[in-house]
Write a protein that binds this DNA or RNA. Structure first.
Lengths: 147, 147
DNA sequence: GTGTTTGCAAAGTGTTTGCAATTTA
DNA sequence: TAAATTGCAAACACTTTGCAAACAC
């Protein structure tokens, strides 16, 4: 059945974004979009793909994530230097970042409210406002010492 | 005069942080702390140091920035993957990030107000809340096209 | 003198790129 | 078959590390 009419919704989604539904893109799209909201690095997605049967190169994973991001299917989130997270939730929302586990998670919809925001500097417009709530294990203090 | 009693305030500041006031650390501290609030990458600080007469290696600049950060003299801010900014303003405040110029700047004190914040996930405590207002040149759209 | 700090060059990350081979329409 | 996509390996940018020489106290 899969062979006959595989994942037509995702295929349409890719086509609508102007991306050919290749085997790699489709398989990555399944991993990304069929499991609810996800926050993944390229490495993580790559190894998930490998664990399932898909043969994809890391370069293709990067390309695909950027193509999906450019197409508005996902967002790139930066919380650590030297690593990008990609978020399948494109609605307006903010994030927890757990420094101990390096995991990013959504803050449910309305639990962050910004009641005042500055005007953009002259000649600029606000493109996006990111709020990152950095959390850590309760047991450790600012420099890794016990609290 | 400089030779007799050079920068005693900064020297004290370093000593108080448990850092020997070496020539390199003192010179970097001057660049960082004597010019108001600054937002610099390691590379930027390194080239400033070289422009002034100081001979410092990039590795020492990195070490020094981390030591200062660990000592609470500055903060590290992450807004772009693959690059760290260091902020000499340690008071609670947030940032503009201009994607066109890759420049980071402070949002004056009370111009960002967060009126609701979620509880930390269980077993975690909130370490810090970062708000980054990403701005760009008014003339360009989401993918660099004219608006 | 003794322990700390520095500089260098090498190694390490995560990410991007160039290009021939493959796949899609 | 023409154009888009993929994989590989090399190239990249930024950061960290190891260790001998230089320095601070």
């Amino acid at each position: 059945m899969d062979q006959v009419r595989p994942y037509s919704a995702l295929i349409e989604r890719l086509r609508a974004a102007g991306l050919r539904p290749t085997r790699q893109r489709l398989a990555l799209a399944r991993l990304l979009f069929e499991g609810g909201d996800r926050h993944l690095t390229a490495e993580q997605l790559h190894s998930e793909a490998r664990s399932g049967n898909l043969r994809v190169s890391l370069a293709t994973v990067y390309n695909t994530l950027h193509q999906f991001t450019d197409a508005g299917l996902m967002r790139e989130i930066i919380v650590e230097s030297g690593r990008s997270y990609f978020d399948t939730n494109t609605s307006e929302h903010h994030h927890f970042f757990d420094a101990d586990s390096a995991e990013l998670s959504d803050i449910p919809g309305d639990e962050v409210v910004i009641s005042r925001l500055p005007a953009a500097p002259s000649g600029r417009i606000i493109e996006r406002v990111d709020v990152v709530v950095r959390v850590r294990n309760r047991a450790f203090g600012p420099h890794g010492r016990l609290t």
